[in-house]
Design a binder for these strands. Structure first.
Lengths: 114, 114
DNA sequence: ACGAACGGTAAGTTACAACTTACCAATGAG
DNA sequence: CTCATTGGTAAGTTGTAACTTACCGTTCGT
């Protein structure tokens, strides 16, 4: 009855959107301002702002106001949460996979594996 | 200019949807048939079928037809792809983060950051 | 103090994906 | 063969989230 950290799931949800993923991957390469991002991504600046808001809420990015500009950068905590979420999944998946192979062997009689 | 395995990104995209994530997490606990999943998840059986199609296309689940039933199970390859994608991201993020802290220290020499 | 640069928020539109029902194909049991 | 099970596909509806434009607040330079 696996119980995952909701953080990781929410982070995955945030990166589910292609545009948001593009923005995030740009930030992975280094901090950028909002307008800077809007110059690269083919959407309006307010749209970028909205995406950044979501990414921030999910703990994937952080902000550093610098004068009139706001510098966005990747927040390691969000990525860490995603990794934890996936690692959990990975372990359980392998166990389930092994179990499946095992019960499959029971149907095709060869040799006991328990 | 980080180039990620597209596989991993597409897998993340698939798990972006909450319902699909729920279905996938059920499968992580063990193989299930379509109707079986539909009994648990609060959507119709065709809807489950459609979600499974997406998960299959993205390499996250596999099928084993057994008579008239179709048993779905987690495909480790998809999870592996996601992990690779995230690990890439993790490394780059840490590097970018370290860089950011460094240049920040140059500006505010008095602040300690560890 | 004023204007320019930067960016967040409000409000409205719209495309799409997540659903539904209806139908059909394939397998197994009698 | 016939009937019941199981599940994929077609077609249509709809809620919502990803956009847009318009507007406003804040910070900095001159």
């Amino acid at each position: 009855m696996t119980t995952y950290r909701t953080d990781g799931a929410l982070a995955v949800e945030a990166l589910g959107d292609p545009t948001r993923r593009a923005i995030f991957e740009l930030l992975v390469d280094g901090p950028r301002s909002v307008g800077d991002l809007a110059d690269v991504v083919p959407i309006s600046r307010p749209a970028v702002s909205q995406h950044l808001k979501v990414l921030h809420q999910r703990g994937l990015v952080d902000v550093r106001p610098q004068g009139t500009r706001r510098l966005y950068l990747v927040d390691p905590h969000g990525v860490e949460a995603m990794r934890a979420y996936l690692d959990q999944m990975w372990d359980s998946a392998l166990r389930a996979f092994a179990r499946a192979v095992e019960t499959d062997n029971e149907k095709n009689p060869r040799k006991r594996t328990t």
